[in-house]
Every structure is written in structure tokens, then in C-alpha cells.
């Protein structure tokens, strides 16, 4: 493993915390609130010092994609902070983001029918 990666990660994550509140975050590569994120192989291996970043990695370690919202809620930080952290981790390639779900109007009938069947099965409604 790259001996510098731990240092690099910790350092670059600090500004994200200074920017708490989410009011004035850089918007260029910023993840949207419902981007789905997953951990990368690099992320699984990296030594992570920052507790919040380690929590994120643990959350994603099952391989599941989770929306930015859910990650922020689970590590108990405001959404703006969660977004900033995840954006940072993305820049470090420790996680990857998938764009949010495509536009609703593109939802086709087959998919809707499947959702309906799933709801009926799951909820007994």
C-alpha cells in the first residue's frame, strides 16, 4: 500500500469538515444528494484514519450501493457534510458514485408493473 495515502486522505478531508453546514460547498464535482455510492477495491484496502470516513467504508463494505442520503444519516452527520465527505472520498477514488436514477418519465410500464407486484408481495396490500 502507498504509505502516503493515509496522510493524504486525512489532510484532504479536513476542509470538508470546516465546511460543515453544506451552505457553500464547491459544486463542480459535487455528488448530488441521491447519487449512489459504493466502495472501491482501493477503498477497501486503504488505511483510513478519519472516523467518519472509516464508518463510510464499513457501511459500504457489503458491496451494496447506498444513496448519499442514507450514508449521511447513518454516520449521523448533516447531509451537507456527508456530501462533502463522499465527494472527497470519490476524488480519492476510495468510492465510486453512480449517477442518480434516470428521469421518472422514462420509467416504463414493465418496471412500474414490477414495482406494483413487489409492493403487493412485500406489503400484503
Amino acid at each position: 500500500m502507498d504509505p502516503d495515502s493515509e496522510l493524504e486522505l486525512t489532510n484532504s478531508l479536513v476542509p470538508a469538515f470546516v465546511l460543515t453546514g453544506g451552505a457553500s460547498l464547491p459544486t463542480e464535482n459535487e455528488l448530488s444528494r441521491d447519487s449512489l455510492v459504493a466502495v472501491t477495491a482501493k477503498g477497501l484496502e486503504a488505511r483510513i484514519i478519519l472516523p467518519e470516513a472509516a464508518l463510510i467504508r464499513d457501511l459500504l463494505s457489503s458491496g451494496r450501493h447506498l444513496p448519499v442520503y442514507e450514508v449521511a444519516a447513518r454516520i449521523q452527520v448533516p447531509l451537507g457534510v456527508g456530501r462533502a465527505l463522499l465527494t472527497q472520498l470519490c476524488d480519492e477514488e476510495l468510492i465510486v458514485a453512480r449517477p442518480p436514477i434516470p428521469k421518472a418519465t422514462q420509467a416504463d410500464r414493465a418496471l412500474l408493473a414490477r414495482i406494483r407486484a413487489g409492493l403487493q408481495e412485500q406489503l400484503g396490500a
Binding site: 406494483r116 409492493l119 403487493q120 406489503l123 396490500a125
Partner: peptide, 11 residues
Amino acid sequence: ASSGKALITLV
């Protein structure tokens, strides 16, 4: 179940 019905109505 009642909440589920509302969701199914939406779908």
C-alpha cells in the same frame, strides 16, 4: 397495509 395501498395507488 394501508400505507402500502396508498403507494400502490400511486403506481
